[in-house]
């Protein structure tokens, strides 16, 4: 392996995910390419139905195989996820890549204690004795700053508060020391005061464990607190991708610009109107041929309706897919 160019932890090429239902095909993801470096945290930002969660779940192949058509290449930590057998896949889940979800109450099994669930996962993935696994579970709860962790091992999920449950889920996800953490809106259901605690915790854990994180959110504020790089999704595609500071200072895609200015931020004077994006997000079963944002875009031209714009580097590491930034330029 070349030591000077470290292999990225995640490399996704031309991922497309389509769901088949009785009457229609939902094109949730339509050609996503994404690279995540080791130790990097990338935020996927988008509205509901933009394909961000579907992309994330595809990385662990969590979608039901019968009704889902996945195409493209997914490589995580050098292994090809698409060709994994089901036994390799279950060894890979939890030990290399782990996931945390928006609603920990639904992610935990309500009839087992939190400790039992962490111990089960540790024993399955790290092949430890019950006693050793318990020690690992205790350490995991301690690492996410849960007070009195010995007692919390014996607690059932419903006995914990929302913030505590989210910490316990992070402990469960990180107990086997994975290299990549996939976070699907982990702070959306939490109060602002608890959200900031969880974001800070993830940031500390990332530093301590050298973790890579893909963080899916619709809240730009949360992304600002945690991400090194941001990818903005719309209609199942990444429309803009840049380091966080670059994206905030110089958003290029009209959707990103609109998204950033539709937030009622502090400086906005009372009575001034918010910038809005007319219309609503596209119907994923009937995506237009060209740019999915064209119908809502004030700069849309004929070209936008005909073809999807290619990915253009506007500056190093800053990519945008929009016909206003032609490929030749």
């Amino acid at each position: 392996m070349n030591l000077h160019v470290p292999q990225p932890i995640v490399s996704v090429r031309d991922l497309s995910v389509h769901f088949h239902s009785a009457s229609k095909i939902i094109s949730a993801v339509n050609g996503v390419s994404l690279t995540v470096a080791r130790g990097e945290s990338v935020a996927l930002i988008g509205e509901s139905g933009s394909g961000k969660s579907v992309t994330l779940r595809s990385l662990m192949r969590l979608h039901p195989e019968k009704t889902t058509a996945i195409k493209g290449r997914i490589e995580i930590d050098g292994a090809d996820v698409m060709t994994m057998s089901s036994s390799t896949l279950s060894a890979f889940r939890g030990s290399v890549t782990s996931m945390i979800f928006q609603e920990p109450l639904l992610a935990f099994d309500p009839v087992y204690t939190v400790g039992e669930q962490i111990i089960e996962s540790v024993r399955r993935h790290c092949r430890l004795s019950r006693k050793d696994a318990r020690a690992v579970a205790l350490e995991a709860l301690r690492s996410v700053r849960i007070p009195s962790p010995e007692q919390r091992l014996e607690a059932y999920p419903h006995e914990m508060s929302g913030g505590m449950r989210q910490r316990a889920m992070i402990a469960l996800a990180l107990a086997c020391k994975p290299r990549l953490l996939l976070a699907d809106e982990p702070t959306t259901a939490l109060d602002a005061t608890v959200q900031i605690q969880i974001l800070l915790l993830l940031r500390e854990l990332q530093r301590e464990m050298g973790l890579s994180i893909i963080f899916v959110t619709h809240d730009i504020g949360a992304a600002v607190e945690i991400a090194d790089r941001v990818a903005v999704m719309y209609g199942g595609r990444i429309v803009e991708e840049a380091p966080l500071a670059t994206l905030l200072a110089n958003p290029c895609h009209p959707y990103t610009v609109a998204l950033l200015s539709s937030r009622p931020e502090g400086g906005l004077s009372k009575g001034s109107r918010l910038e809005t994006i007319p219309g609503s997000p596209p119907d994923l079963s009937r995506l237009p041929e060209g740019c999915a944002f064209a119908a809502r875009c004030k700069y849309a031209s004929e070209a936008c309706k005909k073809s999807f714009p290619g990915r253009v580097a506007v500056s190093p590491e800053h990519y945008v897919s929009c016909h206003r930034f032609p490929e030749s330029a």
Binding site: M164, T193, Q195, I196, Q197, D219, G221, A245, L248
Partner: peptide
């Protein structure tokens, strides 16, 4: 004041360093 400083900052150069409130 704690509620206000729990709002994520929109400036990557001024990330929140310590959470203003602990616990629930």
């Amino acid at each position: 004041r704690a509620l206000l400083s729990s709002m994520p900052s929109m400036d990557p150069a001024q990330r929140t360093l310590a959470s203003p409130l602990t616990g629930d």
